[in-house]
Amino acid sequence: MGGAANGIESRKMVFVTVGTTCFDALIKAVDSQHVKEELSRKGYTDLLIQMGRGTYVPSKFSGEDGSLAVDYFTFSPSIADYLRSASLIISHAGSGSIFETLRLGKPLIVVVNEDLMDNHQIELAEELADRKHLFCARPQTLHQTIEVMDLKSLIPYPPGDAVPVAKLIDNFLGFPAD
């Protein structure tokens, strides 16, 4: 039974988002051979990258040879559909992106941007990782995080809408909106 329906059903997409920021280090990391190999090894078939304001352009690949298919775009009016259809999300540490993904119950790897000054986003990401709601990585450790991640170890984030509070905190601290 090798029809097209089987191929579609067995697709597993990884969605990468940097929101409205420029986070070329994350885009370069997900475009690296190490990360793409680890994602393939974990059974993912598609990598869709939302690259925001970045200047690094990842390589597109059709995946026709059975390897990871890669595509990208800069912005979208809404990423909600991408988040819903993804099997795994890799995101910058913006609180809006984090809580939107956790609310959907999707597995999440948050990659912190260590180049930001007074980066309170690192504290949020590390706290949520300590509570086993997500995985936390740096661009240079992303492939290792993917290699050792066990999605069954994640604990669902308790329901509740933390986005308004998170946006107020981000605004107060001077972070740009997601």
Rank of each mutant, 00 (worst) to 15 (best):
residue 59 S to W: 06
residue 86 A to W: 05
residue 73 F to R: 00
residue 70 V to C: 15
residue 149 M to I: 09
residue 161 D to V: 10
residue 121 Q to R: 03
residue 21 T to S: 15
residue 139 P to W: 01
residue 63 G to Q: 02
residue 174 G to N: 12
residue 16 V to C: 13
residue 83 L to S: 01
residue 62 S to E: 11
residue 154 L to M: 06
residue 12 K to H: 10
residue 31 D to S: 11
residue 107 P to W: 07
residue 40 S to R: 14
residue 63 G to P: 04
residue 171 N to F: 12
residue 146 I to N: 05
residue 65 D to G: 02
residue 177 A to L: 11
residue 118 D to H: 15
residue 28 K to H: 04
residue 6 N to K: 13
residue 56 Y to P: 09
residue 117 M to S: 15
residue 70 V to P: 09
residue 170 D to Q: 10
residue 50 Q to D: 11
residue 132 K to L: 10
residue 22 C to H: 12
residue 18 V to H: 02
residue 55 T to R: 15
residue 166 A to Y: 07
residue 149 M to D: 09
residue 18 V to F: 03
residue 107 P to R: 05
residue 53 R to D: 14
residue 106 K to S: 11
residue 67 S to P: 01
residue 158 P to V: 00
residue 154 L to V: 03
residue 77 P to T: 02
residue 173 L to R: 06
residue 145 T to H: 05
residue 112 V to Q: 08
residue 4 A to D: 13
residue 156 P to F: 08
residue 43 G to M: 06
residue 65 D to K: 03
residue 147 E to Q: 14
residue 141 T to V: 06
residue 145 T to Q: 06
residue 155 I to C: 07
residue 98 I to W: 07
residue 123 E to K: 14
residue 41 R to L: 14
residue 126 E to N: 07
residue 128 L to E: 03
residue 64 E to L: 15
residue 89 I to L: 14
residue 28 K to L: 07
residue 102 L to E: 02
residue 85 S to E: 14
residue 162 A to Y: 09
residue 86 A to M: 05
residue 53 R to L: 14
residue 102 L to S: 03
residue 3 G to R: 12
residue 16 V to G: 13
residue 153 S to W: 01
residue 5 A to I: 08
residue 100 E to G: 03
residue 135 F to T: 00
residue 153 S to A: 15
residue 164 P to M: 04
residue 138 R to C: 00
residue 177 A to Q: 12
residue 39 L to F: 05
residue 126 E to R: 11
residue 128 L to M: 13
residue 155 I to S: 09
residue 102 L to M: 05
residue 169 I to V: 15
residue 167 K to V: 13
residue 166 A to W: 06
residue 178 D to Y: 13
residue 150 D to Q: 13
residue 77 P to V: 01
residue 141 T to G: 06
residue 166 A to Q: 04
